[in-house]
Design a protein around this nucleic acid. Sequence first.
RNA 1: GGGCGCGUAGCUCAGUUGGUUAGAGCGCCUGCUUCACACGCAGGAGGUCACAGGUUCGAGUCCUGUCGCGCCCACCA
Length: 895
Amino acid sequence: MQPLDKVYEPQKFEPYWAQWWIENGVFQAASDSPARMYSLVIPPPNVTGSLHMGHMFEMAETDISMRWRRMRGYNTLWLPGMDHAGIATQMVVERDLAQKGIQRREIGREKFLEHVWEWKEKYGDRIKKQIVRIGASCDWSRERFTMDEGLCRAVREAFVRLYDKGLIYRGTYLINWCPRCLTALSDLETVHEERDGHLWHLRYPVTGSQEYLVVATTRPETMLGDTAVAVNPEDERYRHLHGKTVTLPLMNREIPIITDEVADPKFGTGVVKVTPAHDPNDFAAGKRHNLAEITVMDETAHMNENAGPYAGLDRFEARRQIVAHLQNLGLLEKIEDYRLVVGTCQRCGTVVEPRISTQWFVRTKPLAEPAMAAVESGRIQIIPEQWRKVYFEWMTNIRDWCISRQLWWGHRIPAWYCEKCGEITVAREDPERCAHCGSAKVKQDPDVLDTWFSSGLWPFSTLGWPDDTADLRSFYPTSLLNTGFDILFFWVARMIMFGLEFTGEVPFRQVYIHALVRDAEKHKMSKTRGNAVDPMEVAEKFGTDAVRFSLVVGAAPGTDVVFSEDRLTGYQAFANKIWNAARFVFLSLEKAGAEPWAPENLQEFRPQASGGAMEVPLEDRWIFSRLNDVAEQSNRAIEQFRYHEVAHLLYHFIWHEFCDWYVELKKLRFQEGSGLTPEWKNLLAAFERTLRLLHPLMPFITEELWQRLTVHVAGRPRSLALAAYPQYDVHLSDMRAEREVEVLKSIIGAARDLRAQMKLDPRKVVEGTLYSKSAAVEIARGSAGAIQKLAAINLEVVAGSAPVNSGVHAATPEFDLVLRVPAAEVEARREKLGKEKAQLEKACDSSHRQLQNEEFLAKAPPAVIESIRQKLGQYEAQIAKLNQALDGLDASGNP
RNA sequence: GGGCGCGUAGCUCAGUUGGUUAGAGCGCCUGCUUCACACGCAGGAGGUCACAGGUUCGAGUCCUGUCGCGCCCACCA
């Protein structure tokens, strides 16, 4: 076997294992299994040729769940959702083209699609490889591109079914329009931003009167399209004007004064201009009063022919000129600074323009009701629970979903218009003739579907729906969706609605909403902000395992992960620590001249007694008991998505129990040329079990070490990823061993503490005496070697209490420790003891106070009272001992 | 405008249903090249749990308010 290097180099092993796992099909799932376990990973919503840290984090968490489930014997399937997003694809390709100075509209649809395919060809595989490299164990056989044939079929099926049920309709409404992307946007794709602006107060002369009405607006250019002004019907100030008209300045159009609730008497002047074609509120008011809808801008937000002299101007230029002209006419009452909210395009940030347009909509109320019920009843569990409320909030206020987009990359809407009769034919297969009049002159709707429409079908379309496949039967409903809250409405809610609508079942049983990764300044990481960290770079530098671990360890449910290099350095050191523990194991085995280790059964290995001895060595009984406890806690924590807890738990166990104590104790057993004694087998087995426990969190390093460790074990699984995750085993629990090691640790700890305070020469062995009335006597005698080695103290062990005035010592409930040292360094010790005593007295006082409190005694549970009584007894005993120790210091002139 | 979350050690954060002397990592201080590891070992300092009230025998934990920070949703000119 190749000896291990002194320093762990992840770059050497991680690429190898990433490759190996793929080649050996470790993560391919058998689709005919009855086990219903798999997890979805969200698609990177903005795939741009590389991944960002948020994805890395999400994959780490998902992968931990996946590996853990697989190791527990579940048949697992993790579907990568990458590259499904039409939004992202179109955006990326547009950006690519823009760099070459090409605009989408210039090259036409066909040419544009060629670019899209080219891009996928170029980057699709690279992204996939990157994802594997950063440690995600997905099943790539289920990968689907947006335009995958099967997915296209699923999308059509879904559209047709909804259409037939009347849940999809075509209508003319005021929608959000991006004048740069030239497409409709859903409400969710419109990002509201606060900006500084102005409130312009305009005067509209009342027809046939000297009076004028003052209206306030944040967008003066829309006044060209005004078709009314509104006052509140209850507003006494304007009662005399009901039924009259005003003359619209600049356009010289006579428009009515209407009464409507849109006008709030308490806001501004209480008069509102009504522009049905350019404002959602006004649109509704326009419908109520049957007003004309005059659109004054074209699709690129330039003023159109309805804007009279302003035609052709950009909307902001038009605004400037209109304000100037009104001012000249004396029709501008005043300008106020005003903080307003504008809608911007999620993709490009352009201010969206409300625009009247004919689009396709999904009627969401009938879909939302069962979707809410599913969460309400617990058929879908949202974790952490706080997100349930957010989900309900949104679902309750849901509005119809505009699903048509004027983009070129995406699923075409399966609707055909008849040139002859004008009717619409919606069909699964491309129709040759109009379903209504039979005319062959049918033309497909040029629009494509919102990318989230197809994404909503993901949980079952990837399993073969609409066909009744074996995959669908065995994996649907799926068990877990692990995703970020930023996508709760976009994706999660819609998957639930569609899942219930099309399959009659929930798409997943649990939704775990994970934390968000932020940079050191706590900003959300994003490409546009420029603070995104490339996970490939970081993984290359620190190792994937360290990156995964550091992300997970800081991610308590419901909080954010702050990304920092310091943390990474720390977990890189952790990986190195494990590596070196393994080095110790392998090197000492070599020195022992041991034959290969080949236990019959890894899973059920029990620690063994050494030749001739009746009992298994203390440290072995102890470490297996600890391992057992850690296994129980790990399982529970992963099950409850408390990944940070598992990470802390394993970090502490491996570093501060396995390495600091177990390995140190084992060193004492070492004998050159001893061969593979039972004691060595115990060490190997304990280490093997530790690797299994850690594997879901740090897959690469554990796999490498495990392969080396178990190379001669017959019938072992091909990969650690396929080995069994340790489970609690009542036979391995050994509380006596745990207590004994605790005592041993406190003896050594007390001795080290004394030595440090006395500033004794670290190498010089000091003579000492241990007095004890408890089991510590046996333990100290049994582990004299360990005490001498680990604390550099040669102990005489005496049953009973320390004599008064016996000199320097530490006093604990279990034992007294006396060291024979020169008196010179005693001051430091006295100070320390004084401090300890003060602390104990404080605790003692508070316990006393509690126990003297009648109400406490009357109302607190007996168990609590009893525990405080016991503690008090211990405090008092310890104080007595400390006093004795202090007296001893005073008396010990020169022992 | 509505809603959610967060203020705990110098920094980043844990703290599961209220119950011992509030924890971890990093950083800092002291001493160690001890034959797995200086990406290490041993020891140590450091916190009126944002503030003010309240409930309780008992509050970092529950309630109310104040201040500071972050986020989500929202068609009020």
